[in-house]
Amino acid sequence: MLIYILKRLGLALIVALTVSVIAFALLRASGDIATALAGEGATPESIAVIRQTYGLDRPIPVQYLSWLWDVARGDFGQSYFFRTDVAGLIFGKIGNTLILGAASLAIALALSIPLGVLAAIYSGSIIDRAVTMFSLMGQALPSFFLALALIMVFAINLRMFPASGADSWRNFVLPALTLGYYITPPFMRLVRAGMIDALNTDYVRTARAKGLPARRVVFKHALRNALVPVVGLVAVQLGLLMGGSVVVESIFALDGLGYLAYQSISYRDFPVLQGVVLLLSLAYVVLTLLSDIINAWLDPRLRAA
């Protein structure tokens, strides 16, 4: 198991370094940085000064290494637009995004695992069809529509939860419900398909032949094996949630990473964009590593690989 984790860790490091090269190249490819920094109508002399000040006249590999060193110490450079530290900017907003992502994921899993199991046990029945309909709606409804509907009901009519802001946990309820329901269908389908497969396996028949109660057969023998692909999907969806919740973050005025990425693109604020891209990619790398480790725990056959 330890060897397996070390191997995965090595692989993750290689991917992380590759990602850093791409993130670095992203900024270089956006045009001449010195010209951009100097602003419109700058003289060639002042551009040259800037180029020297920021070390942009050095060879590219040297620039990359010094940038990597800065990043490793948490220095992501300066934002063109906000005129502040990129690191401070990102870490000020990442908290909101992480809370929203974790809460949505928790809602999605709490919905999809029991529903998926139920649909699999009664596959083909009216229960199965009702569950499938419910999850299909989650996929078909645009998230802005559900968000507005939730605001109408729970914020305006019932006044149970606030419609915007990020001051307390109550602010996260409606956006997390919106996003959670939105990402439920893929989980539900995966759990249902995995459970249908698992329930038809020989080892489930063995478990039943041993006279184990149905509950144990379903939740121990079948579910454990059905969850392996779900863990991988969790990693992917969490990564998507971190960067892709722009719409929901904007509607609920929840100042998070997705919204920041959207702003940095519209303001051509490349250092911020670079920081966000780098961070999201690293998050993906870490999540994949975690899902590999969890899967190795779930399925001992993977540990040998």
Binding site: Y203, T206, R208, A209, K210, G211, H221, R224, N225
Partner: peptide, 24 residues
């Protein structure tokens, strides 16, 4: 039958490769 199976009557199957749960 539910109460008897696994206790007073047991069963073994054709495919030993798949009859055991890989996760335990």
């Amino acid at each position: 039958a539910e109460k008897l199976r696994g206790r007073r009557m047991a069963m073994i199957f054709q495919e030993p490769m798949t009859a055991l749960n890989p996760a335990f």
